[in-house]
């Protein structure tokens, strides 16, 4: 039943221990929001799930695939794990359509025509059909992030990772991105979202995880975490951000 299983995950950068002992199981269709102070290891944890960061010890499994020891196979496993970055990271030398079609066509999973059709469908979902032929530089931040979500979805992943997807956006554009994510959650996508948007976490998350200094300090349904936090560090953090 566990879609993502993380066991005794540790991650160090040189002397710096960023993740100290993370144990976490995420169920299919679950939406998990990760909150915590800056530098607590949220991004590092997320990036260990698709091996953008190599775990120092411990294991990460996604869909029964061992991510930590995957070697060459990691490319295959990553096709099933979409990721959305704070800075969008769209490919500026390609049109929106080509951004979305790149992975399915370069990996020879879809023909050019199939990929185009899928991409147009995804652009419709994120409300940007009319932008298919423009370059990312001509889009607003919110539009770029919606394209980035469409690009990740083009590989038809089972799991989506979001690393502060709205933190680089002007406030008036946060809503349009969160709406796309809500829709995705409602469709049953398994999602892990690092976010400072407590409203989103409260509304959409099945579970909220509070991380501090490399440990999961507290976790539970959003109602409980936000209304009745147990740990003093959680209380302090929530007092600061709410």
């Amino acid at each position: 039943m566990g879609k993502i299983k993380i066991k005794n995950l540790k991650k160090t950068f040189g002397e710096l221990e960023v993740l100290k002992d993370i144990n976490l199981e995420i169920k299919e269709k679950e939406v998990v929001c990760i909150i915590g102070p800056s530098g607590s290891g949220k991004s590092t944890l997320l990036r260990c799930i698709n091996a953008l960061e190599e775990a120092t010890s411990g294991t990460v499994e996604v869909d029964g695939n061992d991510i930590t020891g995957a070697h060459e196979k990691i490319n295959l496993f990553r096709q099933n794990i979409g990721m959305v970055f704070q800075q969008f990271n769209l490919f500026p030398h390609m049109t929106v359509l080509d951004n979305i079609c790149l992975a399915p066509t370069a990996l020879k999973i879809k023909s050019k025509d199939e990929a185009n059709a899928i991409a147009m469908g995804l652009l419709k979902r994120v409300g940007l059909q009319e932008k298919a032929e423009v370059y990312p530089g001509q889009l607003s931040g919110g539009q770029q992030q919606r394209v980035a979500i469409a690009r990740a979805l083009a590989m038809n992943p089972d799991v989506m990772l979001f690393d502060e997807p709205t933190s680089a956006l002007d406030p008036e554009m946060v809503g349009e991105v969160l709406n796309v994510m809500k829709q995705l959650a409602n469709e049953g996508m398994t999602m892990v979202v690092v976010t400072h948007e407590m409203g989103f976490a409260r509304e959409v998350a099945d579970r909220v995880i509070f991380i501090d200094e490399g440990y999961i300090v507290e976790q539970g349904p959003p109602q409980e975490i936000f209304a009745n936090p147990q740990n003093q560090r959680t209380i302090n953090f929530l007092n600061m951000v709410l």
């Binding site: 953008l52 990271n89 490919f91």
Partner: peptide, 13 residues
């Protein structure tokens, strides 16, 4: 920007 490589790799390339 290193984010370009990461985005590409995260797609399975």
């Amino acid at each position: 920007n290193s984010g370009q490589m990461e985005a590409a790799r995260s797609l399975g390339l």
